[in-house]
């Protein structure tokens, strides 16, 4: 096999792994949008906030310490302990569930029945609030998240694949952290699907996504389901935040991963779980392949815009997304 072809395969593999992460982030949007019609602009900031909280808890930081010091003239920063990663992840998850509850209780409960654009605006406010809250609780310096996950290229894969091609092929370069991230993302996606298909609350969630009146009539509390979907979105944000944070540090730019989910949603449709998955994979593979093949001819850096152009083309020819029902306007 020619080296070019094999490197092409490597690009596809890397694209698939990126795609899984895009799909995961997109799922966070889909969960909330399906159940409540809210397009959650704060999804990216939720990932940032989750990662910040995880680092803070692991390092034993005292939340709001800067504020406390300002007011009381104290000089506290740390509890003086370190929390093991797994426990810290569990605690962070609790924080995200509390956040979900608070969002429902103090914000969206009072906005039931409002226009989608109002709900969307509310999530913009929420995003800025949460960003500020993250700074206030944990400080605004860049943090490193060290979970002890494997880093660097996988030697095993490189060596095993090296003799697939000729002399100018040195084996697949696959980042270990990317592999871990994909595996975790795949497990989470499968778990979310199983949850929604086979559990009592999963069925209730689908019911609410389909028809609020009917859901009420069989005894489903909309409030509860909305807290549930925001909690699940918080879980997705946590995983995405952890994986991205472990790779490139926990800082503001982490919240921009949400921007990667937008084209995925345009491709896959805002209400389709399979759509988010397939859309994520198409965009992940598409942008890496495009960069590999066409990129060098047009000066590279195509990954910044390729996904959006692809999504725009999709919007023109198939506005309902890959799996959406055809939209037929009645006149």
């Amino acid at each position: 096999m020619s080296a070019d072809f094999l490197y092409g395969i490597e690009v596809i593999l890397n694209g698939l792994m990126a795609g899984v992460m895009y799909a995961l982030v997109a799922l966070g949007f889909v969960l909330i949008f399906k159940a409540s019609g809210i397009f959650n602009f704060a999804q990216g900031v939720m990932a940032l906030f989750a990662a910040l909280t995880l680092v803070g808890i692991m390092e034993g930081q005292i939340p709001f310490s800067h504020l406390i010091n300002e007011i009381f003239g104290t000089k506290i920063h740390n509890f003086g302990w370190e929390v093991p990663a797994l426990l810290a992840i569990a605690l962070t998850l609790l924080v995200m569930v509390a956040f979900a509850w608070a969002v429902q209780q103090f914000l969206f409960k009072h906005l039931v029945g409002q226009e989608p654009i109002i709900l969307f605006m509310a999530t913009i406010g929420l995003a800025y609030f949460l960003e500020g809250m993250g700074d206030l609780m944990w400080g605004s310096n860049i943090k490193t998240l060290d979970l002890g996950l494997p880093q660097g290229g996988s030697r095993v894969i490189e060596e095993l694949s090296a003799n697939l091609g000729g002399d100018d092929f040195y084996g697949f370069f696959i980042d270990k952290l990317d592999m871990v991230a994909s595996v975790v993302a795949i497990i989470l996606v499968l778990a979310l699907i199983a949850f929604s298909q086979y559990t009592k609350h999963g069925r209730a969630m689908r019911a609410v996504a389909d028809d609020h009146q009917a859901a009420l009539s069989v005894g489903i509390s909309l409030n509860f389901i909305w807290v549930l979907v925001w909690s699940l979105a918080g879980l997705v944000a946590l995983v995405a935040g952890v994986m991205w944070g472990a790779k490139s540090g926990v800082q503001f730019s982490l919240s921009l991963i949400a921007l990667k989910a937008l084209p995925v949603l345009m491709l896959g449709g805002f209400t389709s779980i399979p759509g988010a998955i397939v859309g994520g994979l198409i965009i992940g593979v598409g942008e890496k392949l495009f960069e590999y093949t066409v990129g060098p001819m047009i000066g590279g850096a195509t990954e910044n815009w390729f996904a959006y152009v692809l999504a725009l083309l999709f919007l023109v020819f198939r506005p309902q997304g890959l799996f959406g029902e055809k939209i037929i306007e009645r006149v």
């Binding site: 689908r206 019911a207 996504a209 389909d210 028809d211 009146q213 009917a214 859901a215 009420l216 009539s217 069989v218 005894g219 489903i220 509390s221 909309l222």
Partner: peptide, 23 residues
Amino acid sequence: RPYKVARQGIARTFQNIALFEGM
């Protein structure tokens, strides 16, 4: 609230049918 009423054993149908169309 209606979901609580439902849990008390009062079930209903709607004049304009409210089903989960996708299920």
